[in-house]
Nucleic acid binder design. Structure first.
Length: 556
RNA sequence: CGGGCUGUGGCUCAGCUUGGUAGAGCGCCUGGUUCGGGACCAGGAGGCCGUGGGUUCAAAUCCCACCAGCCCGACCA
């Protein structure tokens, strides 16, 4: 959107009684509708004092019990909660808001590279699904299968499934086969190519051990599916998407990632090559943050995607598929949060700035609230990155610092306290979520209004820098089997401390070695770098020749 | 799907061994006192003790089955 466009965030179209209703019942919106867009500010560093905080809002702390800490952060931030349906979660507004921001931003990147959205069925006929052998083998065990329609009331008063389906339907764990069936109809000539589609959808994978966001039975994602005329074009597409994912992770989510290919044993079932992004979260384990697959002609053959090429001969299409999921929300949580709760990169925070009116005395109350509303209004007219600022005034009548702590635990990037004494000096107390929670800086309100976008940019940058430092500090070049085993063995085996990280080590390329290491240490090859200066060496496990070092880690 | 543990107000749990009218803390609601701050005082709401069956005069408590969750193994975005 450019300046002068209609801003969808305004409420100009409402009549006065509707607006009064909003002012009375949705006080966080303020009493005035937000206005139009303002200028964009360049990034600069924003120095701030650091104070140590003692008591933590989340217990246990990260170093005490990382998995439990993760759950508590999600609960305290009201991102999501387990539902009564096994393995499924309820995504609450704050968590869904993060996902919506991810969707909007990633979708724009797909669109800008020529992709368009479409939607394909949730149900896949079993016969479609069965067409690609490796694919079936990879997903069979985690498929939910619909076998009946209609419920019938039994004599005992219970509802039971009624009519069996002639052909069972698989609830999509991924959509290669059902989309392939459509592509087979659409593609006849090389002139029909490429097809570049994406869909935003839910999928179901019946996992044994679910964890909020990281591994749930039903999850949300986007899946892109493309068909190309040549192998070269399809490989280029898979690489293009990997690049988009990497940039999205880095610039939008402040996640530093390693990119490259998966080993044979870790790649997508049915793919020729799987490209991946691997991030390191704060317990030093790896998490796969997105994948892009070159599928060769495997799925084209299975689905019958054929076209007449430029020489007039029938040829199978070259396909790709690629996806990113709600797991990203969990990854962001584990990457940036601290012992006081969630920490959100400003670009995906549903609310970027929260203004907390301090109203100790009745006689100054109205003035303070007016000043807060006026500032919110002004801020909403400004932009950060590609969108208007999201600002909330928390006018709830809650005592103590309860409100402040709620926002800390929700990870809002900037908190602003404005009270009567600030107002006399026309200033506000500014707290950044990337700083210790007690840290405050007094700043003129006008100055803050002018600099808010640049401060948000600075937080975005500092989160990325912090994450990158952490990752680099825990990534080691390892040159002997003993060092490797030491690196991945906790000192306290009864209650393992946070240990290990990413190990860069030479490997002979064999599946047997991978298997052995996985059995011994639960460590796997996360990614085989592609852009790295591939210096040859010797496999640290067998002494055999190795083309390059690969990245090993324990993983989610 | 195998092995171990656990199901009691929204949350964390006590009570169960030795059956006898359901408890605490936190949270929530109301009132008050505080308040540039996760405060305090008083009052209050909220539970057929996972579900079903059995034993018994009587079951949160004993027995059986089932269901769900957690941890450990095989799988995964």
């Amino acid at each position: 959107m450019t300046q002068g466009d209609v801003n969808p965030a305004t409420t100009d179209y409402l009549d006065s009684s509707s607006r009064l209703n909003i002012a009375q019942n949705r006080p966080w919106l303020g009493t005035e509708p937000p206005y139009n867009v303002g200028p964009f500010y360049e990034t600069t560093i924003f120095p701030m004092s650091t104070l140590a905080s003692t008591k933590t809002a989340i217990s246990p702390r990260r170093d005490e019990d990382f998995p439990e800490w993760y759950q508590q952060v999600i609960r305290a931030a009201e991102l999501a909660e387990p539902s009564d349906v096994r393995g499924c979660m309820v995504i609450r507004p704050w968590g869904y808001g993060i996902w919506e921001n991810m969707q909007r931003q990633l979708d724009a990147m797909f669109r800008a590279t020529g992709h368009r959205n479409a939607y394909f069925p949730l149900f896949i006929p079993l016969s479609y699904f069965a067409k690609e052998a490796e694919h079936v083998e990879g997903f069979a065990k985690e498929c939910a299968v619909v076998t009946h329609t209609r419920l019938e009331l039994e004599a005992d008063g219970r509802l039971k499934p009624g009519s069996p389906l002639s052909e069972p339907l698989v609830v999509r764990p991924t959509s290669e086969t059902i989309i392939g069936a459509s592509y087979a109809k659409w593609v006849q000539s090389y002139r029909d190519l490429p097809i570049l589609l994406n869909q935003w959808a839910n999928v179901v994978r019946w996992e044994m051990r679910p964890r909020l966001f990281l591994r749930t039975t039903e999850f949300l994602w986007q899946e892109g599916h493309t068909v190309h005329e040549t192998e070269e074009q399809a490989r280029a597409e898979a690489t293009l998407i990997l690049g988009i994912y990497e940039r999205f992770a880095r610039e939008h989510l402040a996640l530093p990632v390693f990119t490259g290919t998966k080993s044979e044993s870790e790649k997508f079932p049915g793919a020729v090559q799987t490209l991946t992004l691997e991030a390191m979260v704060q317990d030093r384990k790896a998490i796969q943050a997105g994948t892009s697959h070159f599928l060769g002609q495997n799925f084209a053959k299975a689905s019958g995607i054929q076209f007449q090429n430029r020489e007039g001969k029938q040829e199978f299409g070259w396909t790709t598929s690629w996806g990113m999921t709600t797991r990203m929300v969990g990854t962001v949580v584990m990457m940036h949060s601290d012992d006081d709760g969630l920490v959100l990169p400003p670009r995906i925070a549903p609310t970027q700035i929260v203004i907390l009116p301090i109203t100790p005395k009745e006689d100054t109350r109205v003035k303070v609230l007016e000043a807060c509303d006026a500032l919110a209004l002004e801020l909403r007219g400004k932009r950060f990155a590609d969108a208007p600022l999201e600002v909330e005034v928390d006018r709830r009548d809650l005592g103590g610092g309860v409100k402040n702590w709620e926002w800390i635990k929700k990870g809002v990037p900037l908190r602003l306290e404005i009270g009567p004494r600030d107002l006399e000096k026309n200033s506000a107390a500014v707290s950044r979520r990337d700083q210790p929670v007690k840290a405050k800086e007094s700043m003129k309100i006008d100055e803050f209004a002018a600099r808010a976008p640049e401060i948000l940019a600075s937080i975005q940058d500092s989160l990325h820098a912090r994450a990158k430092n952490f990752r680099d500090a825990n990534t080691q070049v390892i040159s002997s089997k003993k060092d490797f085993y030491d690196f991945f063995t906790p000192k306290n085996s009864a209650k393992p401390e946070i240990h290990g990280g990413f190990a860069l080590a030479h490997w002979n390329g064999s599946r047997e070695v991978e298997e052995q290491i996985k059995n011994d240490l639960k460590v796997t090859i996360r990614v085989i770098p592609v852009d790295d200066s591939a210096e040859p060496g010797q496999c640290i496990f067998t002494g055999e020749p190795s083309a390059r070092r690969v990245i090993w880690a324990k993983s989610y």
